[in-house]
Every structure is written in structure tokens, then in C-alpha cells.
């Protein structure tokens, strides 16, 4: 009886240790690559929104809703635009957005770097055409079923949760960007 118990514990412990060793090894091999891919994606998204700029990261307070924020600078080191990485919860999983604004706090462009929404519905929020609705907007954005005012954004039909998650992310970016842009935002 005792022998059986020892065997039970030791075999399970042995398997766990072997699995942990294997995972540690694979994690070590892949960690840098995974991080580099995420950074590359963010970098290329920012460059698409604000071409030809140099991005300087801003140190954020703990209370910040941003994951990361950058000032875009031209070659002479003048600030030309603002860029933030925001994570919001969508319908299925987190959605990671890159939002670029000009120095007056209106949207230059929105890119999604991570999305896991339902194919054919929520995934449509990642369409270039849909995201381009945000361009030029500032202050508060209204998500509507049908776009009636120039400040409205039309939701993807059948994907209200994904649409409002993305819109909420852009709104957060605009609201908080105002703090870094010195309150130049015309609410």
C-alpha cells in the first residue's frame, strides 16, 4: 500500500518536473521572438498612421489607461503628433488599438494590432473602411446604428459589442491624449 502511494506521488512529480523543464526551455527560445513580433506590429501600425516620424515613448503614470504612449517627432525633434496603444475588452477577447492624433486632439488614424472577434461580424471592425470613419474626429464620438451627423460612427451591424469596444478605446485615447497635449482638445 505504502509502495503504491510512493509510486503515485513520485511518477506524477517526475512528469511535472519534466514538463516544467521542457516548457522553461521552449519559453526561453521563443520569448524574445514573441516580444519582437508584438513590437514590430505596433511600430508598423504607428508608421502607417503617422508616416516618416520618429516615435519617442512617454513615461506613463500607473493610473494611465494607455499601455504605451508616444509623441511623434520630425527630424528636427519637433512634436508633430501623438500615438497611444490602448487595450479594450471586445466580445471574445481583448482588442489592442493604436490610435494616432494630431496635436489638437483629432484622430489621424486607428489601427488594430490584436483582434479575436467573430469572423464575418466583429472582425469587420478591423476593416480599413470601417476604421477610417474615426479619421478627423475629436471630442466625443457617438456610436450609432446609422450615421446621421459627421461626428457619428456607424456600428458594424450584428457586432455592436465589438464596435462599441473599439469606439470606447478611441474615446479613451482622445480623452487621455488631451492631458498630454496640454488641454488643447476642443471638447
Amino acid at each position: 500500500m505504502n509502495k503504491e502511494r510512493v509510486a503515485m506521488v513520485s511518477v506524477l512529480a517526475f512528469i511535472c518536473i519534466a514538463a516544467a523543464a521542457l516548457l522553461g526551455y521552449v519559453n526561453g527560445v521563443t520569448k524574445d521572438r514573441i516580444e519582437a513580433i508584438a513590437n514590430d506590429k505596433m511600430q508598423s501600425a504607428m508608421e502607417e498612421i503617422i508616416p516618416g516620424a520618429v516615435f519617442k515613448e512617454i513615461t506613463l503614470p500607473d493610473s494611465s489607461k494607455f499601455d504605451k504612449a508616444f509623441f511623434a517627432e520630425d527630424e528636427a525633434g519637433n512634436k508633430t503628433a501623438f500615438c497611444a496603444k490602448v487595450t479594450v475588452s471586445g466580445f471574445a477577447d481583448d482588442i489592442v488599438l493604436i490610435v494616432g492624433t494630431d496635436l489638437n486632439g483629432s484622430v489621424l488614424g486607428v489601427k488594430i494590432t490584436q483582434i479575436n472577434e467573430t469572423a464575418g461580424l466583429g472582425s469587420k471592425t478591423n476593416d480599413e473602411a470601417w476604421l477610417s470613419q474615426f479619421k478627423g474626429l475629436s471630442g466625443s464620438i457617438n456610436l450609432k446604428k446609422v450615421k446621421t451627423l459627421p461626428t457619428d460612427v456607424a456600428a458594424v451591424s450584428g457586432a455592436t459589442i465589438s464596435s462599441s469596444a473599439v469606439t470606447g478605446g478611441v474615446q479613451t485615447a482622445l480623452d487621455e491624449a488631451a492631458v498630454y497635449l496640454g488641454g488643447a482638445n476642443d471638447e
Partner: peptide, 22 residues
Amino acid sequence: CYIVIIAGFVTVVDLLMQAYLP
């Protein structure tokens, strides 16, 4: 034991996929 073995391999596949098939 089976679950530990299976979960180990799944995590390996997950990490490899994140690194090489993002």
C-alpha cells in the same frame, strides 16, 4: 499524468506558434 503531458505539449505548440506563425 495525461493532463500534465497534454498541457505541456499544448503550451509548447502555443509558444512556437506565437513565435513563428504569429
